[in-house]
């Protein structure tokens, strides 16, 4: 990702030696990943939403909106996704004006790559309304409120949670006498349906190459000292759905394998934790409904 901020040669050396011996600046080992904090359902006017805060202040907000769209002729029996990531200037002065354009594109592509393709898991056929004519488009809009390192991981964590939170409005399709297809959109929020197979949506774990080693869940300083980066996207079945290397430096094959293994293992843990959280969240909501309590969504910032 775009490197901003200055770091001195001696700080860089301190970080590299630390990675060599497995003692990072905050005492963590190479593979230690600080637990993300995730909240669901904060954007009340969207169909699904989540916020993820990671590590040293990385903060992202993701909204999912179902919009009616034209079916893509090349895939006329399914709906589609559209991903847009925007880094707010509140995250860094460099994101002012057009400063974040390149990074926004990179991040949008990283998320899109993880979510599209056969292994992404979502059942896009569920989003088809009238084959060849109408479908739902899931607009996934993310705002990076603060950049503290490890943003790609945070984006995927928040996006997967937002998708789990998403409810697609019910549609009823009828054939008219003249053969044309008519459909109605049910406005009742209670009848909206969850997305199928969200469980299969992958998460990304980024490994940063520093010196001759690597770290997971890098701090901002560590990212500045990294010569290369590997983003590994893994699903609940342990399959690697996508992988992307970025940065100028080259990665030796043995190190690459080690980074891949570590990322896969960490992704497995993150997926388990998130699934557990989603389960708890849904149980709470169901309980509230059963008691007749309003399922009130909290403010974005309580």
């Amino acid at each position: 990702m775009a490197s901003f901020g200055l770091v001195s040669q001696v700080e860089r050396d301190f970080v590299e030696r630390g990675v060599d011996v497995g003692i990072r600046a905050d005492g963590r080992a190479r593979d230690d990943y600080r637990p993300p904090r995730v909240e669901l359902g904060l954007v009340s006017q969207s169909d699904g939403s989540a916020r993820c805060q990671l590590g040293d202040g990385t903060d992202v907000l993701v909204s999912v909106r179902c919009e009616l769209g034209q079916a893509d002729p090349a895939a006329d029996d399914r709906g589609r996704l559209a991903v847009s990531v925007e880094c707010s200037p509140s995250a860094s002065q460099r994101f002012e004006g057009r400063g974040a354009d390149d990074l926004n594109t990179e991040l949008s592509e990283a998320v899109t790559r993880a979510l599209t393709g056969p292994q992404s898991g979502l059942n896009l056929r569920q989003l088809c309304i009238v084959p060849g004519m109408h479908c739902w488009v899931l607009n996934i809009d993310a705002i990076v409120l603060n950049y503290g390192g490890n943003v790609v991981d945070a984006l995927l964590i928040a996006t997967r949670a937002a998708l789990a939170d998403t409810r697609v409005p019910r549609t009823v399709v009828q054939e008219m006498e003249d053969g044309a297809m008519d459909f109605e959109v049910d406005d009742d929020v209670e009848n909206a349906q969850p997305l199928e197979h969200v469980h299969n949506v992958p998460l990304c774990v980024t490994a940063n190459k520093i010196g001759a080693g690597y770290v997971l869940d890098a701090t901002l300083t560590e990212e500045l000292c990294a010569s290369a980066r590997l983003h590994v996207t893994v699903n609940s079945s342990g399959q690697v759905c996508a992988a992307q290397k970025s940065g100028d430096g080259a990665i030796e094959p043995s190190l690459l394998m080690a980074m891949l293994q570590a990322a896969k293992e960490q992704a497995r843990r993150l997926l388990e934790q998130q699934d557990e959280q989603i389960r708890r969240h849904e149980t709470e909501i169901a309980a509230k409904r059963a008691r007749g309590e309003p399922v009130k969504r909290p403010s974005i910032f309580v």
């Binding site: 301190f14 030696r17 005492g27």
Partner: peptide, 23 residues
């Protein structure tokens, strides 16, 4: 000079601990 001295593992741990206490 832009060169660090050798830092032992114990010293590194202590530095990290102090940093975490400050945070």
């Amino acid at each position: 000079a832009n060169v660090n001295e050798d830092i032992s593992n114990q010293e590194r741990e202590t530095i990290a601990r102090v940093c975490n206490c400050l945070q």
